[in-house]
């Protein structure tokens, strides 16, 4: 029973880190209509920057500044946000699919950097000994995982609340207006480019924060964590849950992560031992089919987007 509770806490914590990634993507795609295929890249920036700042010093590698974890989180988010700001400044004025290609490119470039700049990122061996919060309780799995669940859940809740507020604010309504009809928004005197850039950079920062939280939860990162499959998983979560809806992003993250874990477990038990190594490829195929089916049959996802109007309009009861 204790084991099961411990596992449930572990499962939910991991799912919630994905939920934070999803919230970042929802700000970019769901609310503003910006297509980002470099989610893994922004998460990697957050994770690596935070790891470099907080790990103890190691010979032959830059960094190891031994700073507090909270500082690493903030710096990771800021670095990823800055990265998104740069990419956005170049591509947001172009066609939507060029943004897709460029973000795809930035993820590839970040991956190459992580893989090859061994003196900074540890290369293919990654970075270990990343300080984990509550490490003093590591001997008691239930307490340890429970504390992490509370911490990650708390961060997710704060972000959820902030993004919900932002979505209902005049700022969020402008984002939606630009997504729906850029010309109309421009005619109202809103700078589409500035708003897009803000949403893109903020979304990138949220992804960086999620990357940093994940890194400190697991305690080890390597380039293998940030392949395109991660981007794909986060996209599937958002589409399944319902893009444009923050609650959908969280529901999608927990649901798809559940499906992912369950399919991994099933494949491990069903496949003969010589095929087990290949099982993870089949897991991705399953998630890919889920994404395709949702896109074709229920494009608004499980929850779908709710119509959000001004708070004042709701209060007066006008339509």
């Amino acid at each position: 029973m204790i084991d099961l509770l411990g596992y449930a806490a572990f499962f939910l914590t991991t799912a919630l880190t994905y939920a934070i990634l999803c919230l970042g993507l929802n700000l970019q795609w769901g609310m503003t209509g910006l297509f980002n295929v470099g989610v893994a890249g922004f998460a990697a920036v957050g994770a690596y920057v935070s790891a470099l700042l907080t790990t103890p010093e190691i010979a032959g590698r830059l960094g190891g500044f031994d700073l507090p974890i909270a500082l690493g989180w903030i710096a990771g988010a800021a670095a990823a946000g800055l990265c998104a700001l740069l990419v956005g400044a170049i591509t947001l004025r172009l066609r939507a699919d060029y943004l897709a290609i460029t973000t795809f490119g930035i993820a590839v470039a970040i991956d190459l950097f992580a893989l090859n700049a061994q003196s900074i990122t540890g290369g293919p061996f990654g970075i270990g000994f990343i300080p984990r919060p509550f490490i003093a309780w590591a001997g008691r799995p239930l307490l340890f995982n429970g504390a992490h669940l509370l911490l990650t859940g708390g961060v997710a809740l704060i972000l959820f609340w902030a993004l919900e507020r932002a979505g209902r604010s005049p700022w969020g309504r402008v984002l939606r207006a630009i997504r729906e009809d850029e010309t109309a928004a421009l005619a109202l005197g809103k700078s589409a480019r500035a708003y897009r850039l803000q949403a893109f950079a903020l979304g990138g920062a949220v992804m960086g924060l999620a990357g940093a939280i994940q890194a400190h939860y697991i305690g080890f990162i390597s380039p293998l964590n940030y392949v395109s499959a991660l981007t794909f998983l986060v996209w599937t979560m958002l589409i399944v849950g319902g893009s444009g809806n923050n609650a959908g992003a969280v529901v999608g993250a927990v649901g798809v992560w559940g499906l992912w874990s369950a399919s991994g477990y099933l494949l491990n038990t069903l496949l003969a031992s010589q095929y087990q190594a290949r099982g993870s490829s089949l897991q991705i195929v399953i998630i890919g089919v889920v994404l395709a089916v949702i896109l074709v049959l229920r494009p608004r996802g499980l929850l779908g987007e709710r119509r959000i109007v001004s708070r004042h309009l709701e209060e007066t009861g006008a339509p």
């Binding site: 297509f35 295929v37 699919d97 897709a100 395109s228 499959a229 981007t231 794909f232 996209w235 599937t236 589409i239 991705i284 195929v285 998630i287 890919g288 089919v289 994404l291 395709a292 896109l295």
Partner: peptide
Amino acid sequence: VIASFGASLA
């Protein structure tokens, strides 16, 4: 584009 990204990985 989303569908093609997913189909590509699958």
